Every structure is written in structure tokens, then in C-alpha cells.
Simulated assay, not measured.
Amino acid sequence: MQQLSAAQLNEWLSNPSRTQPILLDVREPWEYQIAHLSNAQLMPMHTVPEQMQTLDKQAPVVVICHHGVRSMHIARLLEHHQFTDLYNLSGGINAWAHSVDLDMAVY
């Protein structure tokens, strides 16, 4: 698993020549409703063990939460289950809102 800053993720998502990652948001639905990235797939943390088989183990996966702690735990879980291209969004959606999308709601 690699750490990815909000700026690095923004650069990646803005580059059409680069394979786009699965954006896996592991927050709760109420958090997702407040703020989320376009195309992010909501999979609350507690549901990941039963739903991870729906994800491509070879695809790049960026795991997202509020501040980066829950997402790090899930990235480690996925790594344990042979996912090969994992990234944790350092600082989570909060870092994104404060450094990339200043109009995004914060909580």
C-alpha cells in the first residue's frame, strides 16, 4: 500500500492517459452524502469483508475515508487479500476539501 496525498490523487484523476483508479469510499452513507468524490464507490468499512470480491484485485484502488485512518485499515485488509495496487488517501476527504476542492462541504 502506498500513501497518496490529495494533490497527487487530483493529478492522477486529471490525467486521461493514466489508468483511472477505483475510488473506494469506506465511510458511512451519511458521511458520503455530505461530501464525496465523483465516481467514488461507497462501501462502508464494516461491509468490505463481505463485498471485497466485487472489486478487481489487479486494478488500482484508492481507499478513502474522513481523515485516512479507516481507509488505511481497509487498504491493509485488501492487501492481505492479494489486492496488488493499493493507495490510501492521506488525510482523507478532509484533506481533499481543504487542498483541492475548497467548495466541498467539511464536517
Rank of each mutant, 00 (worst) to 15 (best):
L86A: 04
V62I: 08
W30A: 15
V26Y: 00
P60K: 05
V106I: 13
H98G: 15
G91M: 09
W30R: 14
V26D: 00
P16L: 07
M43D: 00
T84K: 14
H98A: 15
W12T: 07
I34D: 05
A6I: 13
L86Q: 01
M45H: 06
L77N: 10
P29W: 01
I34T: 14
L89S: 12
V62S: 07
E79Y: 10
D85P: 13
P44I: 02
S99N: 11
L4Y: 03
W30M: 12
L77W: 04
Q2H: 14
Q8M: 08
Q8C: 04
N94K: 11
H66Y: 06
A40Y: 06
L86T: 01
E28T: 07
M72I: 00
A7Y: 04
E31Q: 15
M1D: 10
D103T: 15
F83T: 13
L89H: 12
G92N: 09
H36P: 04
I22S: 05
Q82G: 11
H98W: 08
T54L: 05
P44S: 01
I22G: 04
W96H: 10
S99L: 02
Q2K: 15
S90V: 13
L86F: 00
A7I: 14
Q58F: 08
L77R: 09
R76H: 14
S71N: 07
L13C: 12
Q8G: 08
N15W: 04
L102I: 11
R70W: 04
I64N: 02
T47E: 06
S71L: 07
S38V: 06
H81W: 05
H98E: 14
L37G: 06
N88Y: 02
S17N: 10
I22M: 05
H36Q: 05
M1T: 15
I93K: 03
S17T: 13
Q58H: 12
N15Q: 06
D101P: 12
P60R: 03
Y87E: 04
G91H: 11
N15K: 05
R76T: 15
L77K: 13
M104G: 03
Y87W: 13
S99P: 03
Q58D: 14
L13A: 12
W12D: 06
H67C: 07
Y107D: 08
Q8D: 10
E31H: 04
H46P: 00
L102H: 04
S71Y: 09
E50K: 11
E11I: 11
R76A: 15
Q58W: 08
L78H: 01
S38Q: 09
Y87K: 14
E50D: 08
M104V: 08
N94E: 12
M43S: 02
A35L: 07
H81D: 09
L55F: 10
N15T: 13
A40K: 02
P60A: 06
H98N: 15
L23Q: 04
Y32E: 02
T47Q: 05
M45P: 00
R76E: 12
D103G: 14
L9V: 05
S71M: 09
G68R: 02
Q53F: 04
N15R: 07
M72W: 01
I34R: 11
V69I: 15
P29A: 03
